Deep mutational scan, measured.
Amino acid sequence: QLNLPENTDDWTKEDVNQWLESHKIDQKHREILTEQDVNGAVLKWLKKEHLVDMGITHGPAIQIEELFKELRK
């Protein structure tokens, strides 16, 4: 059970990391997002292209984008 703020805009980069870990996103990809200071407010704007530009491969980038879309519903 994750204990994250209800509003994703309030998520810290550590919260984002924890959420991605719960969805089995590889540590190396989570570390990239942490290094790039991606918090919840930033995550909602990220598209696959942004994630790929940061060095995340296409498969996980699509997965992260789709997971966040599902979360926002």
Rank of each mutant, 00 (worst) to 15 (best):
K24V: 09
S22T: 07
P5M: 11
V42G: 15
Q36L: 13
T12H: 04
K69R: 11
N7V: 09
E70A: 10
L46R: 02
G40M: 10
E70D: 13
K28E: 13
H29F: 05
L67C: 08
L4Q: 01
H58Y: 12
E31Y: 08
G40T: 00
D10A: 04
M54L: 12
V16P: 01
Q27G: 06
L67T: 07
V38K: 03
G59L: 14
D37F: 14
G40I: 03
F68I: 13
V16D: 00
N7K: 09
E14S: 04
P5H: 02
G40W: 01
F68K: 08
E21I: 13
L2M: 10
Q27D: 11
V52M: 13
K69V: 13
E6P: 07
W19P: 00
Q27P: 08
N17A: 10
P60I: 15
G40V: 04
A61D: 03
V52A: 11
D37R: 15
K24M: 09
E14Q: 06
E70W: 04
I62N: 15
V38P: 02
P5R: 05
N17H: 10
Q36A: 13
E21W: 04
K73P: 14
K44F: 05
H23C: 05
K69Q: 13
P5W: 00
D10I: 11
D53Y: 10
H29M: 13
T12C: 03
W11P: 01
F68L: 13
A61E: 10
T8S: 07
P5F: 05
I62K: 15
W45R: 15
H23I: 14
D9Y: 08
L46I: 08
T12I: 00
L4M: 07
L46F: 12
K28W: 07
K13C: 09
L33S: 01
V42F: 14
Q27E: 11
E21C: 09
Q1L: 05
S22P: 01
H50R: 15
N3C: 02
Q18D: 12
V52T: 11
K28V: 10
L33P: 02
A61W: 00
N7L: 08
M54R: 12
I62W: 14
L51P: 03
N7Q: 07
W19K: 00
E14C: 02
L46T: 08
E21V: 04
D53W: 01
L4R: 04
A41N: 04
R30V: 04
L43R: 02
Q1N: 11
E6C: 01
I62Y: 15
T34M: 02
V38R: 01
I25W: 01
E31K: 07
D26Y: 02
H29D: 15
L20F: 02
W19R: 00
I56V: 03
N17D: 05
K13I: 08
V38M: 10
I32L: 07
E70Q: 11
W45C: 15
L2G: 09
L4F: 09
E70G: 11
W19V: 03
R72G: 14
V42C: 14
A41L: 12
T57I: 14
W45M: 15
E6K: 05
N3R: 00
L20R: 00
D10P: 00
K69F: 13
D53G: 08
I32A: 08
E70H: 12
D9P: 01
K44H: 13
K44G: 13
K44E: 12
K44D: 13
L4T: 07
L51E: 02
N7D: 06
D10Y: 12
T12Q: 06
D26Q: 05
D10V: 09
K47R: 10
N17R: 07
N39S: 06
L51C: 03
L51F: 03
K44T: 12
E14G: 06
V16M: 07
T34L: 07
I25N: 00
N3L: 03
D53V: 08
K24W: 12
N17Q: 04
S22I: 05
Q18Y: 10
V52N: 11
L4C: 09
N39R: 06
K28Y: 13
L43D: 01
V38L: 07
Q27T: 06
Q36R: 15
N3F: 04
H23D: 03
I56N: 00
D26L: 02
T12P: 00
T12E: 05
V16H: 00
